[in-house]
Design a protein around this nucleic acid. Sequence first.
RNA 1: CGGGGCGUGGCUCAGCCUGGUAGAGCGCUCGGUUCGGGACCGAGAGGUCGGAGGUUCGAAUCCUCUCGCCCCGACCA
Length: 587
Amino acid sequence: MKQSKLLIQTFREAPRDADVVSQQLMMRSGMIMKLAAGIYDYLPLAYRSIRKFQEIVREELEKDGCQELLMPAVQPAELWQESGRWSFYGKELLRFKDRKGGEFCLGPTHEEVITDIVRKNVRSYKQLPMNLFQIQSKFRDEIRPRFGLMRGREFIMKDGYSFHADDADADREYWVMFNAYKRIFSRLGVKFRPVEADSGAIGGSFTHEFHVLAGSGEDAILSCDACDYTSNSEKTEAPQVPAVDHGAEQPLSKAHFHTPGIITMEEQAKAMGLEAHQASKFYLFRASKGEDTFDVGMVLRSDHEPNPVKLRNLLGADVLELVPVAEAEGLSGAQSGFIGPVELEKIPMYVDRSLEGAVNLSCGANQTGYHHFNFNPKRDLKLFKGYFDLRLGVEGDTCPRCGNGHFQAFRGIEVGQVFKLGTKYSKSMNCVFLDEQGKENPMVMGCYGIGVTRTVAAVIEQNYDADGIIWPWPVAPYQVHLLSLDAANPDVSEVATRLEKELEAAGFEVLHDDREGMSPGAKFKDADLLGFPLRAVVGAKGLKDGIVELRDRRTKEVRKFAPEAMVAEVSAARDRILAELREAGGR
RNA sequence: CGGGGCGUGGCUCAGCCUGGUAGAGCGCUCGGUUCGGGACCGAGAGGUCGGAGGUUCGAAUCCUCUCGCCCCGACCA
C-alpha cells in the first residue's frame, strides 16, 4: 500500500479534548476522528487493527464450536418489556419511536433478541448446547463518555450467548469460554488478568472479567501474590482483621469533642487520642428495590472504606446510593462529621465484620460537636442487622482465600467478561425445550462479551513510548513501514517499490511511505508515531553503499544489509518478535 | 445530576477585559531549492468567529437565551 494514497493525516499535537494516551495517539496518528461525544470514525488504519482482532476472536471461538450470526442494532421495545428490562435499564438505553409511534431502542446488548431467536428455533434437548455470537456496534448512552474508545457511547463488541439443557452443562461451557478468552488475549500480546467480578445490573450467578493491565485503567484489581485469587475491588472479599483487645465493656457515654477542620473519621480518631480500630464511622445509604425506597446504615472501622456493591448485593437492592449530605444532616440534626448510627433508631444498621466483638468505640452523636464513646454496635443499635463483609479490600490485605499471600493492586481496563446467566431470560421470555422425558424446561444461559474497540485502545495504553504507538505484531495495522527517503530519487524509488512488492509477495503487510518532497525527519517521526513493528528504510545515501536497513520499533535495534536480503531479514525479525510474544503471552 | 471551563480555517491557539468589520504556527495548493530525525524561499486557497435574539452608527468582543464539547465531582458522616 502506498502511503500517498492512504486516507490518513497525522498531527503533531493531539486535539485538546483527548485526555488519555490511546485516544491522543489514535487521533494523532489519524486512526480515529471524533464525530460526537463518545462516537468515533474508525479510519482505515484503525479498522485494519480492529479487523485483525475480530479475526482472532472468530478463530478462537470457532475452535470451540461457536456460531457467528448478526442481529439488528435496532430492537423493539416489546422484547425488553418481556424481559422486564425496559423499565429497569436506565437512561443508558437510547429509546426512540418510529414513524408509526412504535417504541424501539438501540441495542446496548442482545440478550432479548438472541433469546427470541433461540426460542423460535430450538425445541429439543438434541439441539443443545448452542453457542452463538456476533460482532457488532453497540450503543450505550453513557452518563459521561470519556477516554476515547475506552468509554465511548458507540463501540464494537463481540457478544456471545450459550444455551444449555442444564446447569452443569452451562458451567462446563463457562470454563470453555473462560479458556477461549485466555487464548484470545494471549494471542494479542498484552498483559491481562481474568478477575472475579460483581455480576452488576445484567444479573447472573457468577462471572469473571478479563482486564488488560494499564495504569490508566478505570477498575481497581486486587491480586494475591501467593495464590490465583484475583478480583475486581468491587467484589474483593475483605479479610477478617486480627482480633483486637477492646477492654471491658463500658456503658455508652457522650462527650463534647469538637474538631473543626478535621473531616475524616480516621483523623478525628487520632485527634481524640484513639487508635483507628477504636473509632467507628457511619454511612447512610438509600436503597431502592423495585418500587420501594428505604435508607440503611453502614458502620465501619474508621480506617476502612465502604464497598456499596457488597451492601447492595446483601440487600438484593437494584440501586444503592449515598444519601446526600444535606439530607443526612437533616435526619441526624448534626453537621456532617457528627452523624452517627445510635439515635437513628428507625434505620436498619449493617456493621462490617471487622467490628465483630468490638466494644468501646467512638461514633458521631448526632449533635454537632459531640461524639459517643464506649459504643457497642450490637448493644446500642436498635435495628442491628448483623456483621457482614462490607468494606473495600485494599492492597496489603491478607488474602482470604489462601491465608498466606497479600493483595497487590493493579489498574485494569475491562475488555471482556464471561457470565453465567442462568434462567433469568429464558424464564421471563419462555425460552424452553423438551428434555428426554418430554418435559418442558427453561434453557440455562451464559453470556460472553469482548469490547473489541476498547481492546484495541487498551493495547495502545499498554504499548507506547514518547514517540508513539508500539504495535504488537498480531494487531498492527501494517507489519512493515517501508520508507523511501527522497522518494523522488529514481534509484530510491526503484529499490523501494521492488522491496514493497517482494515483501507483499512473501505475505507481509507493507505500508510504503512514497510521499515526495518530505524530509527524512518528518518520515521518521510519522513512522514512530504509527508504530508498526518493523521499519524498513531505503535512502540514497545507503544505496550508494548497497545498503538498506530494518529497525525494530520496540527495541530500536537496527540491522543493515543489501536490498536482496530484505525478505529474509523481515521474516527473521517476525519470527523473533512472535517468539517473544508467545513467551510473554498469557499472564 | 452538581460545579468549573471552552467553542475563532483541517489541527493548536492569539484577538474579547478596553466594540471599529479577523490573525499566527502547523497542515493544504502551485513554482523552485533541498533530502538520514518534524528543511527553505516565493506565491496562494481556506473562517456566516457554535447558533438565535438583543444593545449599538458599528459586535468575535457587551447582554440574554440556546446548542455542542471538555474537565472535576457524585470520596469525607
